[in-house]
C-alpha cells in the first residue's frame, strides 16, 4: 500500500474569463521512505495539485479525483475536522513562499511551540526543548536566542529554515516540500537537503520534492515525475529519466541545461507554455514539439504503458526506435 495515492486529480479554477484547468488528470503515489521529485515548467500545476491534497485551495477551485488516500484512508470522504488532525501532523508541507507561512506578529519560537502544543500536547518545558532541538537540526545558529526573534528580523534563508523546522516538528509521515531551497545559497541548500534526507532515512518519511533544479533532482530523488501544462507527461526512476528521457518535453528540457551544453548556443524549446486561451486541442506540447504531426494537433495522447516512462505522447515508441528525427 502506498503512503499517498492520488489518481486522476483535476483542479479547475473559476475565473472572470471562464473556467481554467490548472491540474489535468494527474496520478501520483509515494511510498514510505521514498523521495519523489516533481519537475516541470512554471505554471504546470505542481503547487496547485499539492495544495488540493492539503485542502488549501480557495473556494473558486473545483477538485475531482478518482482516488486521494493517505495510509489507505480516503481523504475526500472525511470531515474538515478529521482532515485537520492529519494535516500538520502526519502530512506536512513546506510552502513555496516561506514568509506566507509565518505570522509577522508572533516570535518564531511562539509559532513553533504552538504547533507542538496543538498536535503533540507537549508541556511547556518539553515544547521549549523540542523547539531548540529543531532549530539546531535545521542549522539555525544560537537557537535559544533565535526563538525570541520575529520573522522580519531574520534573513530569508533563516526564515526558510524556521518554516522547515515547523513542518518537521511533529515528525510527519509525509512531507511535501515545494521549492524548499530555491531562495537559499548552495551551501545552505546542501545542509537542508541533507537534513530532509536524514529525516526520511530515520523516520521512514515519504518525501515529495517540488523543484525546478534538475541538479537537486539528480542528487536526491529516487523517482521523478514531469509535469507540463497541468498534466503529468512522464514518470521514471531518476537514473532512467536522465539517461533515457521518453517524452519530447523531458528530452528538450534536459538538453537545454547549460551543464549538458556542447556548444555556446544552447538547444532551446521554442515558444511558451499554453495559457487559458490558447490550449491546443490535441497534445498540449504540440505547438513546441519538433515531432508534432497532424495526429498530435488533433488528438490528446494518453499515458503510455510502463517501460516508456508512462509518457503522454503518441509517438514515444517511434521516437525511441529512431524512426522520427
Amino acid at each position: 500500500m502506498s503512503l499517498l495515492q492520488i489518481r486522476n486529480l483535476t483542479v479547475e479554477f473559476a475565473t472572470s474569463s471562464g473556467s481554467f484547468r490548472a491540474v489535468d488528470g494527474v496520478d501520483l503515489s509515494v511510498d514510505k521512505g521514498e523521495l519523489l521529485a516533481i519537475v516541470g515548467e512554471s505554471g504546470s500545476g505542481k503547487s496547485v495539485s499539492m495544495l488540493a491534497l492539503m485542502g488549501l485551495l480557495p473556494w473558486t477551485a473545483t477538485i475531482t479525483a478518482d482516488e486521494m488516500s493517505f495510509e489507505g484512508r480516503d481523504l475526500s470522504g472525511i470531515s474538515a475536522r478529521e482532515r485537520r488532525k492529519i494535516i500538520g501532523k502526519d502530512m506536512a508541507m513546506i510552502f513555496q513562499e516561506p514568509m506566507s507561512s509565518l505570522n509577522p506578529c508572533f516570535t518564531v519560537g511562539f509559532q513553533i511551540k504552538e504547533a507542538l502544543r496543538i498536535h503533540l500536547g507537549l508541556n511547556r518545558k518539553e515544547r521549549h526543548e523540542r523547539a531548540v532541538e529543531l532549530f539546531d537540526q535545521v542549522g539555525i545558529p544560537a537557537p535559544e536566542s533565535r526563538l525570541n526573534t520575529f520573522p522580519h528580523q531574520m534573513s530569508g534563508g533563516m526564515n526558510q529554515r524556521v518554516v522547515i523546522a515547523m513542518a518537521i516538528a511533529c515528525k510527519p509521515k509525509l512531507l511535501i516540500a515545494d521549492e524548499p531551497t530555491t531562495a537559499l545559497d548552495v551551501t545552505i541548500q546542501a545542509q537542508i537537503l541533507d537534513l530532509l534526507i536524514r529525516l526520511r532515512d530515520e523516520h521512514d518519511m515519504g518525501l515529495v520534492l517540488i523543484t525546478h533544479d534538475m541538479g537537486v533532482v539528480a542528487e536526491t530523488a529516487e523517482r521523478v515525475q514531469v509535469q507540463y501544462a497541468g498534466q503529468k507527461v512522464e514518470e521514471q526512476p531518476v537514473r532512467d529519466l536522465f539517461r533515457t528521457p521518453r517524452h519530447p518535453y523531458t528530452t528538450a528540457l534536459l538538453s537545454a541545461l547549460p551543464e549538458r551544453a556542447t556548444s555556446k548556443i544552447l538547444p532551446t524549446i521554442p515558444g511558451v507554455v499554453p495559457g487559458q486561451f490558447d490550449r491546443p486541442k490535441g497534445c498540449l506540447f504540440s505547438p513546441r514539439c519538433r515531432f508534432a504531426d497532424a495526429t498530435c494537433a488533433q488528438t490528446p495522447p494518453t499515458p503510455h504503458a510502463e517501460g516508456f516512462g508512462k509518457a503522454r505522447c503518441h509517438h514515444v515508441e517511434k521516437i525511441a526506435a529512431g524512426e522520427l528525427v
Partner: peptide
C-alpha cells in the same frame, strides 16, 4: 572548491564528494 563541490549536478551518476561548509 567547497562551492563547486556543493553545486548539484544534473547527473545521477556523477561522483559526489561534497565538502560540507559549517556555519555561515
Amino acid at each position: 572548491k567547497a562551492l563547486l563541490s556543493t553545486t548539484p549536478r544534473a547527473d545521477p551518476d556523477a561522483r559526489k564528494e561534497r565538502i560540507k561548509l559549517e556555519g555561515e
